[in-house]
Amino acid sequence: MATIEPSQRSPGGEPRAAVLTAAPSPKLEVRGLDVFYRGEKGGETHALQDVTVDVFPREVLALIGPSGCGKSTFLRVLNRMNDTIPGARVAGKVLLEGEDILAKDYDVVTLRRRVGMVFQRPQPFPKSIFDNVAYGLRAHGLADKREITRRVEQALGRAALWDEVKDRLDAAALGLSGGQAQRLCIARALAVEPEVLLLDEPTSAPDPIATAKLEELIAELKADLTIVIVTHSMQQAARVSQRTAFFYMGRLIEVGATKQMFTRPRETRTEDYITGRFG
């Protein structure tokens, strides 16, 4: 699989994604991305094969596909969380506003400040609610207490959690419910003001109210953030995203405007998956 240089492609990256390609320059450009995992016994799994896609500013891109199709792997590449997996190897290019984030000398700490991530299982730290949200700020060297308080309150507000926790900011975060914990993790990510937010199946717990709240939240956040969300739920992808990418067996099968993907997919495999014939 030859790596495709950005220059060899038409402007905007994806000639097939007709709708949004013309106007803004992409926030993230992924070019010929391959990811390999080395197994315990030496064999290598080709987890992602030759993925090329753009993510545009202030859009929600949904990643769908059956379990093990590589969508979470793709998400983790975007802020180099794959670095923490022993034996993971990445080839290709991922450009954040034109800069290659996969370059050896690229500072991952800075990258992760710009590209935040919220994991599938909410993992509050065993600290107070306030300290959880302040964690990233303090890690980035912010020491001014008043400023920290201001930003924590703002982040909790943006994550639609403020009203529920404002009277118990000093309480342990581990006492929060699943949906609240997930929004706490989003607040924690928002507090450091990232430009891109990666969400890995944020609503996998079957809680309809929490899911509705989270989807509202995503709709509000996209006003000033770029969001990439992995989801198992086709309905969720249809509700929250402007564009959808379908992954299957480590390949990006199709990417396009969500409406078009769900009504007139070009690929039969996409159609089969969306209509529930497999997956």
Binding site: M81, G116, Y135
Partner: peptide, 11 residues
Amino acid sequence: SFADASLALGA
């Protein structure tokens, strides 16, 4: 996951 959550915040 604790370490991942912290690293993902840019710590």
